[in-house]
Simulated scan of single mutants.
Amino acid sequence: MPRLSPRLIRHAHNANPLLKLLLPVCRDLESARNELRWLQDHAVGLAARSRNAPQTWQTRLQVMVRQRATGKPLQYILGTEYFGDLEIVCRPGVLIPRQDTAASVAHLAHLLQSNDCLPNRLRVLDLCTGSGCIPLLLEHLFSQSGDPPDLQLLGVDVSKRCLDLAEENKARCQARHAEFAQADVLATGDVSPQGQPLPALLKSRASPNWDILISNPPYISSHDFRKTTARSVRKFEPKLALVPPAGVSEIPDDGDLFYPRLLDVADHVHSKVVLFEVADLSQALRVASMAKKKGSWDGVEIWKDEPGAKDDSMVQLEQVVSGLKVLGRGNGRSVVCWRDQGARWLGRT
């Protein structure tokens, strides 16, 4: 990371001493100004609503700027982050929602809504749900369509802290079709030290079948977590949501640990479409290869950060990498598989 010039630091200090504190984490003056404005608005709002601790907004702002200067994510300080059009509550211990995840979910919803062949009831299972942002965004997007199907959305996570926050976000978003439950996705037997195994949870549901399976699992390898992951992510976001647990698999790249299990679950619940988030194109190609080797999918493709991006002539961007169709603009972001009716739902027939 390039060093900041003394001239830039002096300029920030002369404009506002708090800007100088934000500059090392923001890296440029414009970003620092934006963050300072957001933090000030938040401090003013907190001071106006506070009755028991009458701190001035100036005092609150100084505290928040110092927190941000340590690298603490802005979303944990402000308490929310946008995920698509939804404002999702964020708290330490739960992964911060990312807009590239929202872009994949929104593109999936767009494809599903573009076809009139969806079943009257659509059941969606989201594994490693975290803040609950994926089911909540899906419900929001479908609620805006003219004749949405009867949605059943189930978000599953091993962390009770995540599930508590997901329930809070459900109330905040006034969602009616999303449910959340605790289970260990990796567990295959009857017992798990992490709580209820996923098979037991699925067995307890009214129907064993889930039309669509979505997951943004921990996918960062232990090596990449140490060497390439941003310091603020390593220091402040939960490792449980980023790196698969060690010592439970012989897979060469431990960042891939969840994907064979997720593909097995998709077969078990007879999913017609799956959407798995990945770290980059290299991992996307490995996961896509896993799916193709299963032999149970009619089609597999990779989506980039902006899967619906088009060129100047309004044709969707598309390339072929290692025999796989790769759609959109940006880095490899998701692996999508379909079979049976899922091909018609996605317009892949």
Rank of each mutant, 00 (worst) to 15 (best):
V63M: 14
I220A: 15
W57S: 14
A12K: 11
R49M: 06
F180S: 12
A171D: 11
Q67Y: 05
L118V: 11
A187I: 02
P54Y: 12
M314C: 13
E301Q: 07
L213V: 04
D184L: 03
E87C: 09
L74I: 12
I302Y: 00
I251P: 09
G347I: 06
V44H: 03
L154K: 08
G330I: 02
V158L: 02
K294P: 01
I302H: 01
K272P: 00
L213Q: 02
K325H: 14
I214C: 13
L8N: 04
C128A: 10
Q194I: 05
M1K: 08
P307S: 02
V94M: 08
A266T: 03
K272M: 05
E237W: 02
Q67M: 10
P217T: 13
K310L: 07
V185C: 02
G308T: 05
L163D: 09
A103G: 02
Q196Y: 08
R205W: 14
R33C: 01
A279Q: 07
V63I: 15
G323F: 15
V273Y: 02
A69P: 07
G328V: 07
G71A: 07
V336W: 04
Q283D: 03
L61S: 11
P208N: 11
V44A: 04
D280F: 03
L127M: 04
Q75R: 01
P73D: 09
Q55P: 06
C90R: 06
A69C: 08
E301F: 06
S5Y: 12
S334M: 06
A166Q: 06
N115H: 15
A206I: 13
T229F: 03
